[in-house]
Design a protein around this nucleic acid. Sequence first.
DNA 1: AGGCTCATGACTC
DNA 2: GAGTCATGAGCCT
Length: 175
Amino acid sequence: MKNNFIELPIFTRDGIFLAHYSEKGLAGIDWPNGRAELPLGQAAQQRRPTESKDISAKIKNWHRTTETALKKILAGKKSKLPPLDWTGKTEFQKSVWRQMLKISAGKTKSYGEIASAIGKPKAVRAVGGACGANPVPVLVPCHRVLAANKKLGGFSGGLDWKRSLLAREGIKPKN
DNA sequence: AGGCTCATGACTC
DNA sequence: GAGTCATGAGCCT
């Protein structure tokens, strides 16, 4: 069976990332070291590729944006992002990710701050859950979210990644 | 300071 | 519904 998900590699000095595109935009990114596939929007799988050529052209363009964005962010810089496809995700998660997109390079926020920002100051733990469910790590800067006392917290791609990414932005967490 | 417990909200099975 | 958390605050040594 073929889905209309398209996987394209991105070569960086940190390894080969794998970008997943739906017809709506960037739907996910895989970590270089062959991590388990991330949950992606299922709705996208059920759609038919109606205009393959057009989609390919779009995706090619998005991929260019994604590639530069990824490399820039890996270098600790800010960058323009391609359209993101969050199909199949909950409103709560999207709100959380939207907040994360507002964190500029070199800055951090706590899970609690994110929770307050979306009007649910007590949903701190749920925010953590949403971070882990983020299908597009690095571009959606889930690594800039720390625990309340500037401690590391966790990271789905491995804490080494989080430490490294933060270090490139000049951030030094407490532990 | 470090460790333990518990409230809490969203998500998954 | 019960169990799982990438939290946070509070209370103990």
